[in-house]
Simulated assay, not measured.
Amino acid sequence: MSTAVPPARRVVAEAVGTAALVAVVVGSGIQATELSRDVGVQLLANSLSTVFGLGVLIVLLGPVSGAHFNPVVSLAAWWTGRRDGDGLSLRQLAAYVPAQIAGAITGAVLADAMFARPLVAWSTHERFAPHLWISEVVATGTLILLIFGLARTGHARLAPAAVACWIGAAYWFTSSTSFANPAVTIGRAFTDTFAGIAPTSVPAFITAQLLGAAAGLGLVVLLFDPLLPSPAREVVDAAVPAASFAEQGSSRP
Rank of each mutant, 00 (worst) to 15 (best):
A77F: 00
S28K: 06
G87M: 07
A195C: 09
C165T: 15
V235R: 10
P241Q: 12
A121G: 06
V11A: 13
P130K: 07
A246Y: 09
R127C: 00
P229I: 08
P160M: 14
L54F: 10
V184G: 03
M1Q: 10
A180R: 02
I101Q: 00
G216L: 12
M1K: 12
A180Q: 02
P6R: 14
G154L: 01
Q248A: 15
V240F: 04
L211Y: 03
D225R: 11
A13V: 12
R91V: 15
T80S: 06
L210Q: 12
R91C: 04
V220H: 05
G149E: 11
A214W: 09
R157L: 04
Q31A: 15
L21M: 13
T80E: 07
A246S: 15
E234L: 10
L217I: 06
W133K: 03
I197S: 02
D84M: 06
G27N: 08
G187W: 00
V51C: 11
P98W: 05
I186W: 00
A189K: 00
S89R: 09
I186Q: 00
S244Q: 10
Q248C: 15
F52V: 15
S49H: 08
L211V: 15
F179K: 00
S65V: 08
S230Q: 09
L150Q: 10
V56A: 11
A213R: 08
A15S: 15
G149T: 14
P7C: 08
A23W: 13
W172L: 08
D225M: 07
L61D: 05
L110A: 11
F115T: 10
V97R: 01
D38G: 06
V220A: 08
L90R: 14
L143Y: 07
W133T: 02
P71I: 03
R157M: 02
A76Q: 01
R9P: 12
F224G: 07
A214M: 10
G216M: 05
L88S: 04
R82C: 03
G29P: 05
E126F: 05
I105G: 06
L217M: 14
A15Y: 11
L54P: 07
P226V: 13
G154W: 00
